[in-house]
Write a protein that binds this DNA or RNA. Structure first.
Lengths: 155, 155
DNA sequence: ATATTTCCATAGGAAAGCTATATAGTTTTC
DNA sequence: GAAAACTATATAGCTTTCCTATGGAAATAT
């Protein structure tokens, strides 16, 4: 598996990722979110998850999520109304707003995850062991790619 | 990396995938599609890609894409108007419509891919070799997961 | 002190997707 | 073999999601 990959050039690998990894990621995302119809939308889930790593500014959050800043402001307003996040002025910068996750928000995130956890448990349970291992190894790789694509969110 | 994974139970692996793989897939999808503002939308790109494997019925396409059937009908209508797909009656079943990719559609798909290919080339180019290999190995794993989640699209 | 920049909020609108339902073709039932 | 039931696609109307443009407040630069 690794040796097959090792015979390819960088350009071929990028092409493989463009043609097959990115579409798979999109479809996985849509297929999964179709199974999660509850209190939290997909973008709200993304925001809560990012906030579970610590408080963020609105603009920072928008860049991390790949959303426009006004979209993020509105999402946060709604999440605040429901008690899932809190907003506070940044003491270091009066323009900025620090958004943080509340215990209620952490609970909502858990309930959101629970909606597709059962589905994945069932489907992954039916997969052969080596495929599950490959999936688990894919987690870190995908996270690294997201981080790399995020870096130049400006362009 | 593999040995670390091997020490985990199935339940732990599923949890890892729920918590980290699915959100990464969603965010990759959104971050990438933000860089592709052209003639083709994300869902249209998904349809064209699926059709590049061969003609499909409307309902079949909807299930594969994780979209509702009426949504798919509308997308196909628009893609047909632009000459990207062709519709024909299924000779075996007069109710069904077979949708197939045209050369123009294949060209549009290529132009769509080109929009983020450059970005990925740049970002992946800056990643260490072992991470790129991990990414390439992730392609198949993700495809397998998508196939597994698709199987019971009905529930 | 004024100008510029940065950060968040608001307004208005476009796009994308859904549910409910209509229409046409196929299969089943009696 | 005709009526009923079912299946595949199309249409209508609406909701959700997200964007661009812009305004106002705070920080920074001149």
């Amino acid at each position: 598996m690794v040796s097959a990959a090792a015979t390819r050039s960088r350009a071929e690998r990028v092409e493989h990722i463009v043609r097959d990894l990115v579409p798979s990621a999109s479809q996985l995302s849509r297929l999964i979110s179709g199974h999660a119809r509850g209190e939290i939308s997909r973008s709200e889930g993304g925001i809560l998850r990012t906030l579970s790593d610590g408080p963020r500014r609105v603009t920072e959050l928008a860049e991390l999520e790949g959303l426009a800043q006004p979209t993020t402001t509105v999402l946060i307003k709604e999440l605040e109304r429901r008690g899932c996040v809190e907003r506070s002025r940044d003491p270091e910068d009066g323009r900025a707003v620090l958004v943080s996750l509340t215990p209620e928000g952490a609970g909502a995130l858990e309930r959101y995850r629970a909606q597709y956890r059962a589905l994945l448990r069932e489907r992954i349970g039916a997969m052969p062991e080596d495929q599950v291992e490959a999936l688990e190894n894919a987690v870190g790789a995908l996270e690294a790619l997201v981080a790399a694509v995020r870096k130049g969110a400006g362009q």
